[in-house]
């Protein structure tokens, strides 16, 4: 498994780019983030392409169906499949989201919000510990974009994540775009959110584009990253001392070269000292 240098720039691996990634003479990115579920229960071209990409580049796994905060039992079969996928592609980390995705055995395939209460904290922390025991490694959790919050919260989202790290030793994936979108939708200050995060536990960052609607902002990943999100990303880099960044694009996906150009905006000056790596 490969450790990621703090200045590493990554792209979300998308099927439309397989050919260009593998044919590129210069590496289009330092690493790729793999959508876990796209490579579970499939044995054809997707697996072959993933094998070839993973031979040449470090990869990390990023899932959407772990149901981290769900009320259903932890899905051990799913976790075993994830571990097998991780072994196959040598992924350094397994990540998912602070949300729930299924109830009573029905999967909603969306990142659904949780109340930031002490009761929820105890529930989620117990599940994260259980998941980490199954995976035999720290889980990396991302802050999702949310569109509603529940009344009666004991924590803000950032404080909830910080406390979860303290109780479980999990790691964090800070999606800067999600901080911005949720901040707008819930009226909190994204810069304060970033300052409340325990940066020593953050493994990498996400940037993506979102859609501006008359009443709210929608996390759509269908356009370039906005300037306000890049400014927030710069703050995250200053606060963290530098973390790898992944550019996500899931709709209206442009040619690889265009994404590579956009990704370069995330580059910060390399530290003069020897190569630094993200704490493990």
């Amino acid at each position: 498994m490969t450790t990621l240098p703090i200045e590493a720039l990554g792209l979300g691996l998308r099927p439309t780019h397989y050919r260009d990634i593998l044919a590129a003479t210069a590496p289009p990115a330092d690493f790729f983030e793999v959508l876990s579920e796209n490579y579970l229960r499939t044995g054809g071209r997707p697996m072959r392409m993933l094998d070839r990409v993973a031979e040449r580049f470090p990869v990390v796994l990023h899932g959407v169906s772990m149901n981290v905060a769900g009320a259903d039992p932890v899905d051990r079969a799913y976790l075993r499949e994830l571990r097998a996928l991780q072994r196959r592609c040598g992924a350094r980390w397994i990540s998912d989201h602070l949300c729930w995705t299924a109830v009573d055995g029905v999967h909603l395939h969306d990142l659904l919000p949780i109340p930031y209460t002490e009761t929820a904290m105890r529930h989620v922390a117990a599940r994260v510990r259980r998941i980490q025991d199954e995976l035999e490694q720290p889980l990396v959790l991302e802050n999702p974009s949310t569109y509603l919050q529940f009344a009666g919260a004991d924590y803000g989202e950032a404080e909830f994540l910080a406390e979860l790290v303290r109780r479980t030793g999990c790691r964090l994936l800070v999606d800067v775009n999600n901080v911005f979108v949720s901040g707008h939708n819930h009226g909190f200050e994204p810069r304060s959110w970033l300052r409340a995060i325990p940066w020593q536990s953050v493994v990498w960052l996400h940037v993506a584009g979102h859609t501006v609607l008359p009443t709210h902002r929608l996390d759509t990943h269908d356009q370039p990253v906005g300037d306000e999100v890049w400014r927030l990303h710069a703050l995250a880099q200053r606060l963290s001392g530098g973390r790898p960044t992944v550019l996500e694009r899931d709709d209206a996906i442009p040619p690889l070269a265009e994404l590579v150009t956009e990704l370069r905006r995330a580059r910060r000056p390399r530290p003069a000292a020897a190569r630094q790596e993200v704490p493990t």
Binding site: P115, Y147, L148, Q149, F150, A151, G152, A153, H184, N185, H186, G187, F188, P214, T215, H216
Partner: peptide, 16 residues
């Protein structure tokens, strides 16, 4: 569940 009244006033609970 009780949905909090936070954020843009035009973004009502039902719309959320």
């Amino acid at each position: 569940p009780a949905i909090a009244a936070v954020g843009p006033t035009g973004f009502r609970r039902a719309a959320r």
